[in-house]
């Protein structure tokens, strides 16, 4: 038995013997709203979060054990996939959408670019079962995890039951993702009176509040809505967004309004990753055909910005970068669990 297992067994024994409660609170600043996620239904504990973290980084969740959640959701990219316009899956397959950044998910009402998933617990099933992504079946994952020496112990520690279930896998994955809170950007520090904007950032903030904030609403810089932002349909993808889920005309070409936090780490942008640079995104909005009736009503008034204003706007958007979150060691690959000494 290796050192890792001994330590896990010891931790389990201590937890059981002393009724050790490892419950934790979701930490977020006062200028954030109340989370949408029902934390009472799935109370956070250290052991569940750590199990979820191990699962998130373990490629055992894919059919051929090569692709983990982190393959497309890298911590250093704010849990997006920098440089990759579309998601990568097993056998070098390319998906149909840009892997979104993962943070502040406790405040998100639905998931995926088209909102097809209504609960964070169930979100992981989508990439797991997609043949273009992880190509695996949750029932098969249960079997694979049960056969490993590591996981029954981690499940015992987290749920008091060494039997692996789909429910517990999904709850643990959700717990780890709930802890991915990005709330320590310069913007947040300004809100807390700990910092101040430069003149350029302040000017950019005014541009932002005039033209962007109605959809990308502070402090989360998203609004849990879906909108047609005027992007032409990519002929190779034929992606009509929310319509693919609802089959209702009113939902054609509606895509999630993403958060604008951590943009420096999470390029390329848009649901199909068509824009590499923030400047391209801003140019898209200033060059919209505002006569289109399909366009979101909030965009049907032209946005005219000088080059100076565009630069100011970008300066403000960069205050939403959160390096403290991106480089938080608590969110990284759990080396001690998945690659302990001697197993490398």
């Amino acid at each position: 038995m290796n050192t890792r297992l001994i330590w896990i067994l010891f931790a389990v024994a201590v937890s059981v013997a002393f009724g050790y409660s490892n419950s934790v609170q979701l930490v977020y600043p006062a200028h954030f709203p109340t989370p949408v996620y029902d934390l009472q239904a799935n109370p956070l504990t250290t052991s569940k979060i750590e199990l979820g973290r191990a699962l998130f980084y373990d490629p055992i969740l894919s059919k051929d054990n090569t692709i983990s959640c982190a393959s497309c959701h890298s911590p250093y990219n704010a849990f997006a996939h920098t440089d990759h316009a579309l998601s990568h899956g097993i056998n070098d397959q390319i998906g149909t959408r840009n892997a979104p950044a993962l943070f502040n998910l406790a405040w998100q009402k639905s998931f995926m670019w088209d909102g097809a998933v209504h609960h964070l617990d169930m979100q992981a099933l989508a990439p797991i079962s997609s043949t273009l992504e992880m190509g695996e079946d949750i029932a098969n994952i249960v079997q694979k995890l049960q056969q490993k020496s590591l996981y029954p112990l981690l499940f015992e520690q987290a749920f008091g039951d060494s039997t692996v279930t789909g429910q517990h896998i999904l709850q643990a994955l959700a717990q780890f993702q709930l802890t991915l809170v990005s709330a320590t950007a310069k913007y947040d520090k300004v809100q807390q009176g700990l910092d101040s904007f430069s003149l350029q950032e302040q000017a950019g903030k005014q541009v932002f509040e005039s033209h962007c904030n109605s959809c990308h609403s502070a402090p989360l810089f998203m609004n849990n809505e879906f909108a047609n932002n005027g992007l032409k349909v990519d002929s190779s993808l034929q992606d009509f967004g929310k319509w693919l889920v609802s089959q209702q005309t009113k939902d054609s070409l509606l895509f999630r309004v993403p958060s604008l936090r951590n943009l420096s780490y999470s390029y390329p942008y848009m649901h199909d990753g068509r824009f590499q640079k923030l400047r391209q995104v801003i140019d898209h909005y200033t060059q919209l055909d505002t006569t289109s009736t399909l366009l979101d009503v909030r965009l049907q008034q032209s946005i005219d910005l000088t080059n100076r204003q565009k630069t100011d706007l970008i300066a403000f958007l960069l205050t939403l970068n959160d390096p403290q979150f991106v480089f938080n060691p608590d969110n990284k690959f759990p080396r001690a669990i998945l690659l302990p000494t001697g197993n490398e």
Binding site: M122, L125, D137, I138, A139, T165, Q167
Partner: peptide, 8 residues
């Protein structure tokens, strides 16, 4: 969901 009755 491991019962195979959940749309992924």
């Amino acid at each position: 969901p491991m019962q195979g009755m959940y749309w992924a």
